[in-house]
Design a binder for these strands. Structure first.
Lengths: 211, 211
DNA sequence: AAATTATGCGAGTGTTTCCTCATATTTCCC
DNA sequence: GGGAAATATGAGGAAACACTCGCATAATTT
């Protein structure tokens, strides 16, 4: 049985400044409650209370709880893509090595945008139908990396296909960065893991392709 | 506010064969319902029904829903460790390269044990207080890898510290294996990603350490 | 300043869910 | 076979929850 198609479209657009603030407060409150109570403990009442807004107001802009989370996911994904895009399109990505540095830095920044929220969203993402859009985000991220690799194809190891390598790079980058940020909070530790990440990715991209 | 300490200890031990079957059916049903409905839609009633058991019986052995999930997490973690342990302790891990092959194979097998369940458990893990035990699993896995690396320390690149490298290897192995199994279902695709994973890890461990 | 539109409110409704408990059935053991 | 212990049952109490609706207040327009 496929999960029932829960509508996640916003109910009505806020037109005045007052209501825009309400919506903003609701989104912020959703993030906070989600972090504090996880998805199952996040109730509409709690969110409204945290936002300093009545339940009724919540339901004026969001048809249900899921739509709130979906909106949050969208916003967060937007932020992630922006971070990565800036890192790879700028001048810092002129060489493969510099680009890799920037890439890793961006990967860590993405985790640091709002680590706790990031975590909950990633966990709860499958519940929200907006999963597809999140996959999109992941794919677009991989796309950005692939384009970057193609730009430096000459420096890649023979037999290293950019499309496949981009998947590997994106996946391991995200995982190690996530672990670094959430399990190794101290700055020196994070720095060491960052260096390891550089070794990992550079040796993979330029080292021998054994198969 | 820390999440309220929900008891996850089993309520009473089944003594007769009949009740052991009941408990087993409940765990199996929990897994199925979890996969079919996600955590939020998994109710005790549904689980009992699926198990062909009355609600009352469920509560004789499990004090609440969380404890069911916790038991499942424990059992799954046990399975994961066994897979990895077998791969690294056997004769196949005689050389670094062979061991790496076995390691990667085990990583994929871990994902394949029960991919759908694995996924839901990983997602919902933070909700269950048993999170700590899961971290334990991750750490013990890292420990197994570290021991393996130490056994082949002579073949590692200069400056590659086993403890740190084990974290990197475990993290990226799990992530890429996960992605391979869940996003690339076809066998040839998985094979290619498996080969890439080998390149990734071997080049990292034996390639130059640039920092 | 009146009319209109937008926003805010929160008690209340109907549903869902967790979990208990009194009772019935099965198994064990002497 | 009979008494005790283990196991199974499911109706129902209590609480939590999502969401509505009628009305109050504020902003905007004319």
């Amino acid at each position: 049985m496929p999960p029932s198609p829960i509508p996640t479209e916003p109910r009505k657009q806020p037109r005045q400044a007052r209501s825009r603030a309400t919506v903003e407060a609701l989104l912020e409150a959703t993030a906070q409650v989600l972090v504090a109570h996880d998805y199952k403990g996040s109730t509409t009442a709690r969110i409204a209370e945290r936002a300093g807004v009545s339940i009724g107001s919540l339901y004026q802009y969001f048809p249900n709880l899921e739509s709130l989370v979906a909106a949050l996911v969208d916003r967060h994904a937007q932020g992630l893509l922006k971070v990565m895009d800036r890192a790879l399109e700028g001048d810092e990505a002129a060489s493969l090595k510099d680009g890799l540095r920037a890439l890793i830095h961006a990967g860590l920044d993405m985790q640091r945008l709002d680590p706790a929220l990031h975590r909950v969203l990633m966990e709860q993402l499958p519940n929200v139908d907006r999963l597809r859009r999140a996959r999109d985000t992941s794919r677009r991220l991989t796309g950005l990396i692939e384009a970057f690799l193609c730009r430096h194809a000459s420096q890649l190891a023979a037999g290293r296909e950019p499309a496949l390598a981009a998947v590997v790079v994106e996946t391991s980058l995200e995982a190690v960065a996530h672990r670094a940020v959430s399990d190794y909070p101290s700055a020196p530790e994070q720095q060491r893991l960052q260096d390891e990440l550089y070794d990992l990715l550079l040796n993979y991209l330029t080292g021998p392709s054994i198969g």
